[in-house]
């Protein structure tokens, strides 16, 4: 058994990471989601596998790697670290000295 653990160092949030595992011949053998950011892979045999991890909210969006299931796997994601500029609309380029922007996520259907 191998634990595939997905880690976002900037957040303690639990994300649903999508997991796909292929055998050495490229056949999809597992497809599912993490629980508590962890996926348990019960490998039938020791061999070379290909792992794909998806999370559309994080960077990188997809992680692909080959592994031999001998030890647990840790995969690191990051939120986008973004810079926001706020300037005066009527004095182009004049920085706003202090204030706050609020970003409210729009639910996707």
């Amino acid at each position: 058994m191998v634990k595939i653990r997905c880690i976002n160092p900037k957040s303690i949030s639990i994300f649903n990471y999508k997991i796909k595992i292929y055998d050495e011949f490229g056949n999809l053998i597992e497809c599912g989601y993490t629980r508590n950011n962890t996926y348990i892979f019960n490998n039938k045999k020791c061999g070379l596998y290909r792992l794909e991890v998806f999370n559309r909210y994080l960077y990188p969006y997809i992680v692909r790697l080959y592994f031999i299931p001998t030890s647990n796997i840790y995969i690191y994601f990051n939120n986008n670290s973004s810079t926001f500029y706020l300037t005066d609309k009527n004095y182009i380029g004049l920085p706003i000295e202090r204030g706050e922007l609020r970003l409210w996520q729009v639910p996707t259907i």
């Binding site: 926001f84 300037t87 000295e97």
Partner: peptide
Amino acid sequence: ASPYNITISSGTGEEGILNGSYKVSADV
């Protein structure tokens, strides 16, 4: 994590933001 509150100082703020669509409001 939404909403994100991004503190602006001298015209700039920085925040780790999840990919997605957001509505924006300001408190200046």
